[in-house]
């Protein structure tokens, strides 16, 4: 039982980061209908930039979080305005191809610049474990999860309670009506893409403070984020959160009780099953949309 609780905790912690990363992806898909295959690379860039600011330059962790957010938001904004904008309204396929190209490009430029070695992000708190009843959690993890949850809440508030969020929701429901009522749809798209990239990057940076950042990790992260988004239903905010936690827990339990070698298979098998039996995702029909 204690072991179970430990697995569950580990799963929830990993799941929180899956959720954060998937949130970015689901926003971009839900709003822009762009299937962003470069999402994992945004996550990866977050980790690498985090390493650059904290370990390489020796900056404070929280300052670095803000810097990573700013850099990646600007990056996302530029990519959308100058590149993805040109593909708007041509259906899903060009977006898929373009972001696949972007992902290959970003991953390999990063490899050229920093090499394949794992890079550590210096955390905000010292190493050390906390004992909560029978469960052991490192302070680093707790810290990272806390920041992650804060980011999710902030994102939710942004979507629910700001003018930008209102514009985003309007555009999501009906781009034509939104643009007729004076919303600058192109700006909303750029902001959404920037937000999506930022969320992925911060998720990558937080997780790199627990594990490490690596240039080649993007592909797997993209895949897992897709798994989560499909679990939760494309474009669904609560779906992404629940889907992320679900995947984290499922992987942790499988790894703990069954076999460690095939942990990554879980997600893919789940996706195949879900799409077979409930193609709209587990939560999509009833859940509110971003």
């Amino acid at each position: 039982m204690d072991l179970f609780l430990q697995f569950l905790t580990n799963g929830l912690i990993n799941g929180a980061f899956y959720a954060l990363s998937a949130l970015g992806l689901t926003l971009i898909f839900g709003l822009m209908r762009v299937v962003n295959f470069a999402h994992g690379e945004m996550y990866m860039l977050g980790g690498v930039l985090g390493w650059f600011f904290t370990t390489h330059l020796g900056l404070n962790f929280f300052l670095s979080v803000a810097l990573v957010a700013a850099v990646m938001a600007a990056f996302g904004l530029l990519i959308d305005r100058f590149l993805i904008e040109r593909l708007r309204g041509e259906g899903e396929e060009p977006g898929i191809l373009f972001t696949i190209g972007l992902s290959i490009f970003l991953a390999n430029v990063t490899l050229l610049v920093v090499g394949p070695a794992p890079l550590k992000v210096a955390g905000a708190v010292p190493e050390g474990a906390l004992f909560i009843g029978p469960i052991i959690v490192t302070k680093l993890r707790l810290m990272a999860v806390a920041v992650g949850i804060a980011l999710m809440i902030a994102t939710h508030a942004l979507i629910r309670h700001t003018r930008l969020g209102q514009a985003m929701r309007a555009t999501f429901q009906d781009p034509m009506a939104a643009s007729l009522s004076g919303i600058r749809v192109a700006r909303v798209h750029a902001a959404t893409f920037a937000l999506g990239c930022t969320l992925a990057a911060l998720s990558g940076m937080l997780l790199a403070s627990i594990y490490s950042a690596q240039a080649s990790v993007g592909g797997l992260v993209s895949l897992k984020s897709f798994v989560v988004v499909i679990l939760g239903g494309m474009g669904s905010f609560p779906g992404a959160v629940v889907g992320g936690l679900l995947l984290g827990v499922a992987e942790s339990l499988w790894g703990g009780y069954v076999a460690t070698g095939m942990v990554d298979v879980i997600g893919f098998v789940l996706v195949i099953l879900i799409l077979l039996f409930r193609p709209q995702g587990l939560f999509s029909s009833s859940s509110e949309r971003a």
Partner: peptide, 23 residues
């Protein structure tokens, strides 16, 4: 399936097979 779902599920099958070959 269509569009992104088709893309992701085909990719998933290749990944599953890779993991099977590995294990």
């Amino acid at each position: 399936l269509k569009g992104p779902y088709f893309v992701i599920v085909t990719l998933s099958f290749a990944e599953v097979l890779r993991l099977v070959a590995n294990n």
